[in-house]
């Protein structure tokens, strides 16, 4: 396939209102499993992170249950994200135009998109979210296993477990911040959320934010 920006399932529907398929049903289910587990992990993790948030353990049926369930949700997150990674990694590879996009970040935040290079399926910001989440989730699962006292405690020295819990806390903070940026971007750029709920966006949305992707989809027809 000559196309570099199009994923299987992406398609343009012509009509009075152009719509574009962006995510297949499988991708959406995969996304929401991952998103749900990330939110549950953030809440259950923060409950143990600081005493002022300990009351959040109530949402999981108390302290011991929170402690027990958090790592298992982590396992769900890991495999969920692995699925997303396999689906999306190729279109998230870094390109030269991504540097240009980043240099013009001022135009990005002020919505002056006509000054930006045309963007494929993902812009540089989305790619950064993708890659930083990939790295952070690897850090979280590895450090998380080391501090999973119930099953893995005996395989690591106390010193290794100390280091792991510090890495886990730092990576968790970073992941939560990246998640906030991700969610905020989806809210701020109106018309984005339908991509993950119904699987499609309007033609205008694709034209405005991912023009190169739209062009390739159209010319592929």
């Amino acid at each position: 396939m000559a196309s570099t920006e199009v994923a299987p399932g992406d398609a343009v529907h012509r009509g009075p209102q152009v719509t574009v398929d962006r995510y297949t049903r499988g991708a959406r289910i995969n996304h929401w499993i991952t998103a749900g587990s990330l939110v549950l992990l953030a809440i259950s993790g923060l409950a143990l992170f600081h005493p002022s948030l300990y009351w959040l353990t109530g949402l999981f049926g108390g302290g011991p249950n929170t402690r027990a369930i958090h790592p298992w949700i982590g396992v769900v997150l890991f495999f969920g994200f692995l699925g997303l990674f396999i689906r999306f990694w190729k279109l998230n590879l870094w390109e030269r135009t991504d540097n240009v996009w980043l240099k013009k970040i001022k135009d990005v935040v002020t919505s002056n998109e006509e000054n930006l290079p045309e963007v494929g399926k993902y812009n540089a910001g989305q790619k950064l979210v993708f890659w930083s989440m990939s790295i952070l989730i690897i850090l979280l699962i590895t450090s998380g296993l080391v501090i999973w006292e119930q099953y893995f405690g005996q395989y690591f020295t106390v010193e290794q477990r100390r280091l792991a819990v510090l890495i886990h806390a730092l990576a968790a903070v970073a992941a939560i911040c990246v998640w906030i940026v991700h969610v905020y971007a989806a809210i701020w750029v109106r018309g984005t959320i339908s991509a993950m709920t119904q699987g499609r966006v309007t033609g205008g949305w694709a034209w405005r934010h991912h023009r190169k992707w739209l062009r390739e989809l159209v010319s592929g027809k």
Binding site: V189, R190, G191, T202, G203, G204, W205, W207, R208
Partner: peptide
């Protein structure tokens, strides 16, 4: 950051 009518027309 809203999609404009112009964007839809262009699409």
């Amino acid at each position: 950051n809203r999609v404009t009518d112009h964007d839809e027309q262009e699409a």
